[in-house]
Design a protein around this nucleic acid. Structure first.
Lengths: 194, 194
DNA sequence: AGAATTAGGGACCAATCGGTCAACAAACGG
DNA sequence: CCGTTTGTTGACCGATTGGTCCCTAATTCT
């Protein structure tokens, strides 16, 4: 019907995602994005309405890749006991501290802080991701030796608690805490689950 | 010796702090700051080197007021058992969710996310505040019936865990969680301490 | 091959950005 | 009461911002 797009949208979004992840929304200029995505201004605006739309698409991409991976990790029984899968996710978050110069943390967490309050679309997307993560934590808990027997209410509270703990760790990563310091946090968090 | 300053620096910083708190660093323009501080451009630049210096001063002001209040709350024995003081701080954080339209969360947490990675001065300030908060948590734990007997290592890990939980709650507030939802998180967090 | 449609590229735009400056005002020391 | 010093003010600046537009290129349909 017409000239086909020359670049891959998801690949371009991966690059845009990396920019927003590192610099935040306001901190990322169009020039930054174009440079990272490797396309020209006109092409970008053919594919996306405006900067805001790029951000939302990048956030959605984050959902489909990173959050999805976390959810799979938590839900997949082959990862061992539910508690071990939870430990695995928290340790993966901790490993972000390895990027000592510019730890990226977690884009969902970053978006919650710098866009969710004044941008309803971002807030909705962040809340949806959080819900997905909470549910996955709940599944892992239901698969764990210690929490399996808990009443539903306590398990869902614990799941939300874990989601909060996860965000807290990501903030600490971003603040520059070392992996060693975070190990203590993880140990205390898991201890909380019995 | 010369003309005295007409505005109060700390009061102006309180107003600047509110702007950065709500909008972040990049999201706050000089116009926003001047408007909130109620002074003219030239006066601002006589008092501060540049925007970055204003931000650092506002962050320091946050330290001297808000963080200080949190630290006092945790350390002050008149607040009851250490665990009750910890509960008090977490509930104060939860109450931030009451600002339903534009929850501010916590400036220290916001700064960790949007400035700490690429601004060494901000990172240092954030880490200093976190350390102060951790220590205060440790004091409260040492004053609690259940954690008093714990070995030092476990208590300091728990203190860092609480600092992380506190940040996590602030992120959830910022994301738009309701006070009711956060109550479950707080309950689970305190349960973790026995 | 020509018409139709959409992508690519980059010059261009108004608005806003953070920051400077020069003229004026208010205080103190002599 | 004048000189020195510093705060106040707003006009002004170059640079950068996000976004538009137009010309060209590539593809499909007839």
């Amino acid at each position: 019907m017409a000239r086909p797009r020359e670049f891959d949208i998801d690949q371009a979004l991966d690059n845009a995602m990396a920019v927003f992840w590192a610099k935040g929304y306001e901190g990322s200029s169009l020039a930054d994005l174009l440079d990272a995505m490797g396309i020209a201004r006109g092409s970008l605006y053919k594919a996306f309405k405006d900067k805001h739309a790029i951000y939302l698409a990048a956030l959605d991409r984050y959902d489909r890749t990173m959050v999805e991976a976390a959810v799979v990790l938590l839900r997949e029984p082959s990862g061992g006991d539910g508690l071990e899968r939870i430990r695995g996710l928290l340790e993966a978050a901790r490993d972000g501290a390895g990027e000592r110069q510019h730890p990226r943390g977690c884009l969902m967490c970053n978006a919650a802080i710098d866009r969710a309050t004044d941008d309803p679309a971002v807030r909705a997307q962040v809340l949806a991701m959080m819900k997905r993560l909470e549910d996955a934590f709940a599944v892992a808990l239901a698969d764990s030796a210690t929490a399996r027997a808990w009443p539903n209410k306590r398990r869902s509270e614990a799941a939300r608690f874990l989601a909060g703990a996860y965000l807290g760790i990501q903030v600490l990563v971003r603040a520059g805490y070392s992996a060693d310091e975070l190990d203590g946090v993880i140990a205390a968090t898991l201890q909380a689950l019995g």
